[in-house]
Design a protein around this nucleic acid. Sequence first.
DNA 1: TCCCTCCGTCGGGCT
DNA 2: GACGGAGGGA
Length: 673
Amino acid sequence: MKRFVLEQDKGSRRESDYRIAYTDLLNEQQYDAVMHDYGPALLIAGAGTGKTRTLVYRVARLVEDGVLPSNILLLTFTRRAAKEMLDKAADVLDERCAHVRGGTFHHYCNQLLHTYATHIAYPPSFTLLDQADAADAIHYVRGPLAAQVRGKRFPQKQTLLSIFSSSVNRQVPIYEVLASEYPQFLVHHELIEEVQSRYSAYKSENGVMDFDDLLVNSKKLLLENEQIRRKVACANRHVMVDEYQDTNALQAELADLFSSEHGNIMAVGDDAQSIYAFRGADFRNILTFPDRFEGCRIIRLEENYRSVQPILDLANTLISKASKKFDKKLFTRKEGGDLPGIVKAPCERDQSRFVSQMILQMREMGLSLGDMAVLFRNGRDSYDLEWELNRKNIPFQKFGGQKFAEAAHIRDILAHVKIIVNPDDSISWNRVLLLLEGIGPKTAEDLISWLRRNKTRDFAECGMASRSYRKHLEQLSLALSEIATNRNQPGKAIEAAAEYYKPICAKHFDDHPKRLKDLEAFSGLAASYSNLDQLLQELTLDPLDATAVDTERSVKDENPLILSTIHSAKGLEWDTVFLIQCLEGILPSGYAVDDPDAMDEELRLLYVACTRARERLFVTYPVTKESSYGEYFSNPSRFLQGIPEKVLETWLLEEKPAIKQISDGSLSSDIQQ
DNA sequence: TCCCTCCGTCGGGCT
DNA sequence: GACGGAGGGA
């Protein structure tokens, strides 16, 4: 075979030929990155240095230069991030940019595998397991093995999943994961490996994949099928990987494969903002990127355009405490700005009162709720505040924490849908059958193996005619066929499932009125998808945040306040940021204290949180905490100690007297929330 | 075999 | 607060 390499007709292009005036809009380094053409490049972009802007203009520039949008691949950390960037690119240039392919590694791999599923011995209709589904499947195969263990603890389903995931994403054997992260389970390493191989067997027998399989199988597909690799890689003339510091070894290999024909890969990220080690990411990946590619160009963005200097001073102070040093100092030409405040509240209630009252005050001053955010380490750290915001009628949307599809009633409905899309999915069958009165684990198992043997989803002839649950099975069959006939009208399908599920829901949950409302919202939402398969895939890869599906959104025309975990706030920014629950044991997490690397990551989390703020930053913590044992004293995060007052200003909360004595002796109460 | 209750243990961030 | 294992009655 002969190959002819086509030259690019660039070079002759002059600045004035472009529709966009890149030189006026970008600083020197940003411009360099935007104009970078061929070969590998690494863009190190500190917090707020215009990384998104650079990517947006690079997409526009490539399109202006005649690269087909479908030949550009933009891998980002969330689907939302990709969509925002491509929309902006469409704004600055034209609609063509909206056709650039963008999404997460998992999305792209999912599409790839659905196209080429048969090459890895999967049906093209394979379904995805989200974290909870995967845990359920592990639970199922774990049972008989865990029973062999007497006395000593055997890891639980969720822990097993983390162990497997860690092994896959870091590309190290189970034994090593156990030795470094779960030494207490080292004694069981053979059994644990056995669980893993049974779990893998379960997945291929049932035609399902978990998140990690999407990556693993894509790698396998591309490595074992040279023709497919070439076809895929040829289509990726330019690959850009955002948040590269949070990719793991497997994702890095995939990125290399995706760009393996043209070799035009641009990695973008910031080692100081790496916060996904728990998912196998290693910030050293980004630092060694140039070593993997000869002639790699390195471009650094250092000037911050986001935050006022006092906020950057705090961020710089914090990151300098890391045990592994980052050669990084953020600076800005933005003038002025208030000192970030540290607010010590007597208890969590008072912390919530402070945050909500401050928010109301700022709203009265004309600031928009949508320009403020409250950040926290764990999804549950905002419960108390959410309660207070509801009480004060402050609309908010929460990112992170419980997802819509994780709620038990939604998972029940989804299980019915899953067995329509993939009749081999035993876990979903199990879930569906256990809902029926009179059916327990044993009966469900018998029924499922009967279904498998007879390759059907109809129970009419299963020989249960005399059993008490016969009636229930008949109703289930009816409901399933109703869902199946509406496979291409997900709205109707979900409605049918919900209709069938209503009495079950009422029996299982005390709070069924609220849950029934969720089901209504769900069918409305499902109507926007073209079929059930698509609905399931999108819902798994892009889980909806629980508050996004709130049926009773009160104020329509006002952007809500944002509550978010720090992890979910990655890449976003607001005028005002509150960072709550900055407590020892929470940030840093109690699990991290014995591990210097993990502690550094906690510190980077704090760094990420602080650098989200443009104008105002409040760090708050309560001095007492409630738990099941009662009230106890809590300590502020060790990261906040010893920071000079000129960098982080202390705020004191004072109670306004609730009742004032008026001269005539009558009482007037000053309403305090 | 199902289903309820009790009790000890563990607990997180995301696709 | 949720899960998993154990024990009891139906």
